[in-house]
């Protein structure tokens, strides 16, 4: 039988026999009144606390240290996140404060640009008006000259046509012979 088994058997037998021993000693009350019970409990408590402290101090200490480090890391991360958020907030607030000034500046700039643009457009329009007027004048002059030329041509054609009519109406056979003879004479003189 191994040592541990023997130990367990002894413990079981003691546990089984204990009540009979207690009763034989005069009942449980006589056991309680024993000062050794108090001393024994105190001793055992100190021993068990000592054992627990001895075995658990290191792992629990490591656990606390790890947890503390983890907490510190999380606090640092939270602080960084908070700082970043505060910086963004300050930036946004600064922008909001500048917003009125920026808007006035933009309005002033826009008004100045509009004025310049208006002047430019007016000048350009005036130039365009002068150009258009000149072009219209030229076109009118050209049309007038063309019309006069066409009227002259028409008048000349009409005069010739009317002269032809008059000649056809007024010219007799004797006049035609005389004119023919006169033409022949002139031709003979030339040759």
């Amino acid at each position: 039988m191994s040592f541990s088994k023997r130990w367990i058997h002894t413990l079981i037998w003691l546990t089984v026999l204990a009540p009979t021993q207690v009763l034989a000693a005069g009942g449980i009350e006589s056991v309680f009144s024993d000062t050794w019970l108090t001393i024994g409990k105190a001793f055992n408590l100190v021993v068990i606390i000592g054992i627990l402290v001895y075995f658990l101090r290191k792992p629990i200490g490591h656990f606390f240290a790890r947890r503390s480090a983890d907490i510190q890391r999380r606090i640092r991360e939270a602080e960084q996140a908070r700082d970043a958020a505060q910086a963004r907030l300050a930036d946004i607030q600064a922008r909001l404060e500048k917003l009125d000034t920026e808007m006035d500046e933009i309005r002033r700039q826009a008004e100045a640009d509009a004025r310049v643009e208006r002047e430019k457009i007016l000048t350009q329009t005036e130039k365009d008006v002068v150009k258009m007027r000149q072009r219209a004048r030229n076109e009118i002059e050209s049309l007038k000259m063309q019309t006069i030329r066409e009227l002259r041509e028409y008048t000349a054609a009409k005069v010739v046509e009317m002269a032809g009519d008059v000649l056809r109406r007024e010219l007799t056979t004797e006049d035609e012979e005389r004119l023919f003879n006169s033409f022949l004479e002139k031709m003979g003189d030339k040759h």
């Binding site: 546990t15 204990a18 021993q21 056991v31 309680f32 024993d34 024994g40 409990k41 055992n44 068990i48």
Partner: peptide, 13 residues
């Protein structure tokens, strides 16, 4: 209590 009554030291540990 019983174990302490039997052997006050070590046994009840």
């Amino acid at each position: 209590i019983v174990l302490t009554a039997l052997l006050p030291f070590i046994l009840p540990l």
